[in-house]
Nucleic acid binder design. Structure first.
Lengths: 134, 134
DNA sequence: ATCGTTGCAAAATATTTGCAGTTGA
DNA sequence: TCAACTGCAAATATTTTGCAACGAT
C-alpha cells in the first residue's frame, strides 16, 4: 500500500495532531491514549498503521532503540538533536544546530546517498543532575 | 544486579566475541543464532541478559532510530557514524568523522551533560542506488 | 561456600494482520 | 463507485522474568 492514493481520514488527522501536540516523543501506546480522548473508538492497530503511513509521508519519525523496548515517535521532522537522560529516560528536543550534519543531506558519503539523519545524545539531564541523583 | 561483581562466563565471552565478529549490527535473535554454533545450549534469554550487561560495561551499543521493530546491536563502541539504507535496511559503519560532535562529549548542552552520542544517517546505499531500485 | 549466572519455560510486551464493514474522493 | 481505511480480535514477534540447577571466584 505504498504507492496508493492516500485518504485524509479523521483518524490520521488526529494521530498527527496529537503527535505534534505532544513534546514527549510518545510510544504508540501513549499516543493511542491521547488520541482516544478525541476518538474513543480508535484502535491501537490503527494508530500503528497511521504511524507507518505518516513516516512514509515524512510527517513522523520513528526513534527505535532508545532505552526501553518500545519505539518512540516524533512529529517534528526537520532534523534536530535529541537528548536522552540515562537516569529518568526522558527524551528532549535540543535547539542546538549542527550545520556539519545538515551539509551531508543531499550529498553522498562513502558512496551512499544521505537523505536525512538522526542524532541522539546520551547523558544526564539538567533536572537529574541538579537533584543530585547518581 | 547493576553494582555487583560480574563473572566472566563463557556465554558472555562468546556473545561479545560474535557481536564483534559480525559487521551486520545484528538483532538479539540473529546473534543468538551465531552464538549457538559455539554454545548450542545457550538460550535467547541469556543473550538478552548479556547484551544488557555488555551495554552497562560499555562493550556494546544498542542502536537508536533504526527501522524495524527489533533492537540492533554494535560491538564497536568508539563513536562513529551509522548509515541505514531505506531500501534494503542494511546498516553500515562509516569511517567519516565528525569532530564537532566528539567535542560535545564531556560538555553541557542546554544544561544537560553529554556522555556519549549516536548518529544515524538515512538514505539509499550505494548498492541499491546502482541497482536502480526505487 | 557464595552468589552471579544459566537454561528452560512461561509471562509480559509490543507489533502486525485478516477480515468484514465503513468512508473519503 | 471502489479502493483505502477502520475496529476488532487473533496471531506474531519481541523482550523479560521466575526458578532451580550450575559454576566462577
Amino acid at each position: 500500500m505504498a504507492g496508493c492514493q492516500r485518504r485524509n481520514t479523521r483518524q490520521r488527522q488526529v494521530v498527527l495532531e496529537q503527535l505534534r501536540a505532544c513534546y514527549c516523543h510518545p510510544t504508540a501506546g501513549e499516543l493511542y491514549q491521547r488520541v482516544r480522548e478525541y476518538l474513543p473508538r480508535i484502535s491501537l492497530g490503527t494508530v500503528y498503521r497511521n504511524l507507518d503511513i505518516l513516516q512514509e509521508n515524512g510527517q513522523a519519525i520513528r526513534l527505535a532503540g532508545v532505552m526501553g523496548s518500545e519505539a518512540r515517535f516524533d512529529g517534528r521532522c526537520e532534523p534536530h538533536l535529541h537528548f536522552q537522560c540515562g537516569q529518568c529516560g526522558q527524551i528532549l528536543d535540543l535547539q542546538t544546530e549542527y550545520p556539519a550534519l545538515d551539509e551531508l543531506v543531499g550529498t553522498t558519503v562513502e558512496g551512499h546517498t544521505v537523505t536525512s539523519y538522526q542524532v541522539l545524545l546520551h547523558g544526564d539531564c539538567r533536572t537529574c543532575a541538579l537533584s543530585g541523583r547518581e
